[in-house]
């Protein structure tokens, strides 16, 4: 484990009944990296992220976040991570401001710190005009920016984004990625799962999953050279079809 390692995953495994969703996964993530999980639906991306956030107990193996074991120091881990789930999960019936204040309170932020955070984030994420709007009435793109803002309220060292851009149009998606780069630029580590292949190109490093296992890791350019394909989409298709052929052969 190097000095700039933020997340170290050692043999994480998770079963749901007889189904193994994540199968003996090992990898390390460095500080300030934008680290992408790529995989088809059901490949185990979300299960992996949920274990790292302490929402799911691993069946076997463990991981450390900033040196803290996720199994024994769960609460300390939660203080330093931010999480944005696949499904929009803020209170639709509350105004934007009440949502922000609630989550600030849940992280135990003192009023003054919370105020500073709100001021900084609403400016960065261009949310000022929505502060007193009803959360329910916001367009999807704004909702996702709000969810990101709330995940960032307590200045997390590691940010987990589970399909943060699902369902929004390309321009908003590009905007969103600009923000992700800013966050990483300030020294936070960002985990992203996605199944938009063009988004995968924006990541510093990628991890491709298939049926709970890691089948490939590396930076986008490394992967493209190694597999002699022009885009990550082609690399991904090649890897998955190879796997499927192997499975059919067996």
């Amino acid at each position: 484990m190097g000095p700039d390692t933020t997340v170290s995953v050692r043999g994480l495994t998770r079963d749901f009944g007889s189904f193994r969703a994540v199968d003996d996964v090992w990898f390390e993530v460095h500080t300030g990296e934008v680290f992408g999980f790529l995989g088809a639906n059901g490949a185990g991306k979300t299960t992996l992220i949920r274990m790292l956030c302490g929402l799911l107990e691993p069946t076997a193996g463990t991981a450390t976040v900033c040196g803290l074991d996720i199994r024994t120091r769960t609460r300390d881990v939660r203080r330093i991570i931010g999480y944005m789930s696949q499904k929009f999960s803020l209170y639709e019936d509350l105004p934007v401001r009440a949502n922000i204040e609630f989550f600030g309170g849940v992280y135990g932020l003192p009023r003054s710190a919370l105020k500073r955070s709100i001021a900084r984030l609403t400016a960065e994420l261009q949310l000022e005009e929505y502060a007193s709007a009803q959360t329910r009435s916001l367009p999807l793109g704004i909702k996702q920016r709000l969810a990101l803002g709330i995940a960032l309220l307590h200045n997390p060292s590691v940010l987990f984004l589970d399909e943060p851009t699902a369902g929004v149009d390309p321009i908003i998606r590009r905007n969103f990625w600009r923000i992700i780069y800013d966050i990483a630029g300030r020294g936070s580590t960002v985990f992203v799962t996605t199944h938009y292949m063009e988004e995968a190109e924006y990541c510093n490093r990628l991890l491709i999953m298939h049926q709970g296992k890691i089948i490939e890791t590396g930076s986008p350019s490394e992967l493209k050279t190694r597999h002699d394909r022009p885009t990550i989409r082609d690399v991904f298709i090649r890897l998955i079809s190879e796997r499927m052929q192997e499975e059919n052969a067996v």
Binding site: G54, R78, R79, I81, Y83, S85, V106, G108, I150
Partner: peptide, 14 residues
Amino acid sequence: ESGTMEQILVSPIR
């Protein structure tokens, strides 16, 4: 049901 419980649970709240 709405997923907000999960969002609370990733925080340090007991």
